[in-house]
Write a protein that binds this DNA or RNA. Structure first.
Length: 431
RNA sequence: GGUGAGGUGGCCGAGAGGCUGAAGGCGCUCCCCUGCUAAGGGAGUAUAGAGUUUAUAGCUCUAUCGAGGGUUCGAAUCCCUCCCUCACCGCCA
């Protein structure tokens, strides 16, 4: 959510900035509602104030033993006016809220303008795509051929499309990856390891921006009763982790707050029928190690570089070729001011595919969730800046390893960094 | 799931229809006093929103005592619903 100031003073400027990312702000409607809001709020509050004062007078009159019936009648009439004004105000505020909660974050100045991923800007590359003296297979072919590897047929039977079963060496490799990532981030990068719920309430989803706009991307849990709070499966551990600071005021000394968690993530993938249907690339359920930081506003852009670097470390230590891309305005997520994607090389697709997305959300999420901090000696708390990134998507990392480390005989070499987590196993073989 | 007790400011804890944004204490901040230490005295100490304003300074107003609804001229206080916490029992990994 943007600061309400953006919609009062300088709304035109806000509209211009939003237009950069292809969002059209309804300036006229907002202006009209704002005029109404102001008038109604002033009226409501002054009525309220008058009623409070009159009621106090009644109390004093009672104390003196006077007859209060005429006074009461007067104040009663006041109350009716107040109720009417309140109802009107509420309506206007709801309309405003509707519009405002659907407005995306403002892109940072240095974010290139563009409509879609075509206009993203490559920032850097690491590693060389491996050269094979045979035709490289894709991860599905490799994984299914391995002794106890990937098994999509069984997953289809027990659940349905876009789910996977992993077995044997592949399942272990998958587990090794999460262990490796968590150890790296906690031991080398200073993150606190956490374990978090994968089912969250809607206040949390509002806080990070998945709701109200993107409910169809989520799996929703049926509540036990109609009055229970609505719950959904998390699409990313960003949701529980960032909501650590919802409705909190953090001491300055505790910043930056750096959290990591391994979790399953669930996405309904509504609207992506037919895209990446083969293999592990686009699943309804996948594992991810998430990085989240809560920092002071002046530190957030540096923190984005740092956090992205932490995700890059995983790829580098695994020896996976990748490139770093600065997303253009049109390709950024709803809540982001600036986003880097890390794209790993996939030989079978002969291209780079997203494996991590690292974003600075500025104060956008913090404002929604009232996540604040207080500077030493300062009276007023300030909004935090929040950042998050995948460090990394485990399933896609597995894909990258299967494809980049595949051998002519169909076996897959285990990257050295993972061997301590695999009891020294150097290679996963067929048969 | 059952029974019982509760949810009040950073924390503890009073209040049981009006003078309570909320006593008292602890903590914290500033000031004074005191060779050091210990102790003492005084002042201050929630958040959000709106209006005014060059101002994130002041001033004025509104809201908030778990949440939502209701009764009332007026609710922390009365009524209803829900949520949560604690204790014991049942069940379970």
């Amino acid at each position: 959510m943007l600061d309400a100031k953006h919609f009062r003073d300088g709304i035109e400027e806000t509209a211009v900035q939003l237009a950069r990312r292809g969002f059209e702000l309804d300036v006229n409607t907002l202006k009209a509602l704002e005029v109404q809001r102001k008038e109604l709020q002033v009226r409501t509050e002054s009525l309220q104030s008058e009623r409070n004062a009159r009621s106090k007078e009644i109390g004093q009159a009672v104390g003196r033993g006077e007859d209060t019936a005429p006074l009461k009648a007067q104040v009663g009439a006041l109350g009716d006016q107040l109720d009417a004004a309140k109802a009107e105000l509420q309506q206007v505020q709801a309309s405003l809220q509707d519009i405002i909660s659907g407005v995306p974050n403002l892109p940072a100045a240095e974010v290139p303008e563009g409509l879609d991923e075509e206009q993203n800007v490559e920032v850097s590359r690491f590693g060389e795509p491996p050269v094979f003296d045979f035709t490289p297979k894709d991860h599905v072919e490799i994984g299914e051929a391995l002794n106890n590897g990937l098994d999509f047929d069984t997953a289809r039977k027990i659940t349905g499309a876009r789910f996977a079963v992993m077995k044997g060496g592949v399942a272990r490799l998958h587990r090794a990856l999460t262990q490796f990532m968590l150890d790296l981030h906690t031991e080398q990068h200073g993150y606190l390891e956490t374990y978090v719920p994968v089912i969250v309430n809607h206040a949390s989803l509002q806080g990070t921006g998945q709701l109200p706009k993107f409910g169809e991307d989520l799996f929703h849990v049926e509540g036990e009763s109609q009055d229970k709070v609505a719950l959904s499966l998390i699409p990313t551990a960003e949701v529980p982790l960032t909501n650590f600071v919802r409705d909190e005021i953090i001491d300055e000394e505790q910043l930056p707050m750096k959290l990591t968690a391994h979790s399953a993530c669930f996405r309904s993938e509504a609207g992506s029928h037919g895209r990446d249907t083969r293999g592990l690339i686009r699943q309804h359920q996948f594992d991810k190690v998430e990085l989240v930081q809560m920092v002071k506003p002046e530190d957030s852009m540096a923190a984005l570089e740092e956090l992205t670097g932490h995700a890059e470390q995983v790829l580098q230590q695994l020896g996976l070729p990748y490139r770093k891309v600065l997303l253009c305005t049109g390709d950024m997520g709803f809540s982001a001011t600036k986003t880097y994607d890390l794209e790993v090389w996939l030989p079978a697709q002969n291209t780079y595919r997203e494996i991590s997305s690292c974003s600075n959300m500025g104060d956008f999420q913090a404002r929604r969730m009232q996540g604040r901090f207080r500077r030493k000696g300062a009276k007023k708390p300030e909004l935090l800046h929040t950042l998050n990134g995948s460090g990394l998507a485990v399933g896609r990392t597995l894909v990258a390893i299967l494809e980049n480390y595949q051998q002519a005989d169909g076996s897959v070499v285990v990257p050295e960094a993972l061997r301590p987590y695999m009891a020294g196993v150097e290679r996963i073989s067929q048969g």
